[in-house]
Amino acid sequence: MSNTVTVEVWDPSYRQFEVHLAELSDVYRSIPSDASLGLTLDDGEGDCVIVTVEPYFSTVTALRDRTFYNLQLTDDHAEMEIMTAGEEIRWPKGCILPREMGTQVLLEAADRDVMWSKHTWVEQ
Rank of each mutant, 00 (worst) to 15 (best):
V9L: 05
V9H: 08
V9D: 02
V9I: 15
V9R: 05
W10I: 03
W10N: 13
W10S: 14
W10E: 08
W10R: 14
D11Q: 11
D11G: 13
D11S: 15
D11M: 04
D11Y: 10
D11W: 12
D11A: 14
P12E: 09
P12Y: 03
P12G: 13
P12K: 10
P12Q: 10
S13D: 15
S13Y: 14
S13M: 11
S13K: 10
S13C: 11
Y14W: 15
Y14K: 12
Y14Q: 07
R15K: 15
R15M: 14
R15I: 00
R15W: 01
R15F: 03
R15Y: 09
Q16P: 07
Q16I: 11
Q16S: 15
Q16L: 05
Q16Y: 09
F17K: 01
F17L: 08
F17W: 01
F17S: 03
F17R: 02
E18N: 14
E18S: 07
E18C: 10
V19M: 07
V19A: 10
V19I: 12
H20P: 04
H20N: 15
H20W: 11
H20G: 12
H20M: 12
H20E: 14
H20K: 15
H20T: 02
L21T: 07
L21K: 11
L21F: 06
L21Y: 08
A22Q: 13
A22P: 01
A22E: 11
A22Y: 10
A22G: 01
E23D: 13
E23S: 14
E23I: 01
E23N: 13
E23P: 06
E23K: 15
E23G: 05
L24P: 05
L24H: 02
L24E: 01
L24G: 06
S25N: 08
S25K: 11
S25P: 04
D26G: 10
D26C: 03
D26F: 08
V27D: 01
V27Q: 02
V27G: 09
V27W: 02
V27E: 08
Y28Q: 02
Y28V: 05
Y28L: 00
R29S: 12
R29P: 01
R29W: 01
R29F: 03
R29G: 06
R29L: 10
R29C: 04
S30P: 00
S30N: 09
S30G: 02
S30M: 06
S30W: 05
S30V: 00
I31C: 03
I31L: 06
I31S: 01
I31A: 09
P32M: 07
P32H: 07
P32W: 05
P32D: 08
P32V: 04
S33Y: 11
S33L: 09
S33D: 13
S33N: 12
S33R: 09
S33A: 13
S33W: 00
D34Y: 14
D34V: 02
D34G: 07
D34A: 08
A35R: 00
A35V: 05
A35I: 07
S36R: 07
S36F: 11
S36N: 15
S36E: 14
S36Q: 07
L37S: 03
L37E: 04
L37T: 04
L37G: 09
G38F: 15
G38D: 08
G38L: 13
G38R: 15
G38P: 00
L39N: 01
L39G: 03
L39F: 08
L39D: 04
L39E: 09
T40V: 13
T40A: 06
L41P: 14
L41H: 08
L41I: 04
L41S: 10
L41D: 06
L41M: 11
D42S: 12
D42M: 10
D42C: 12
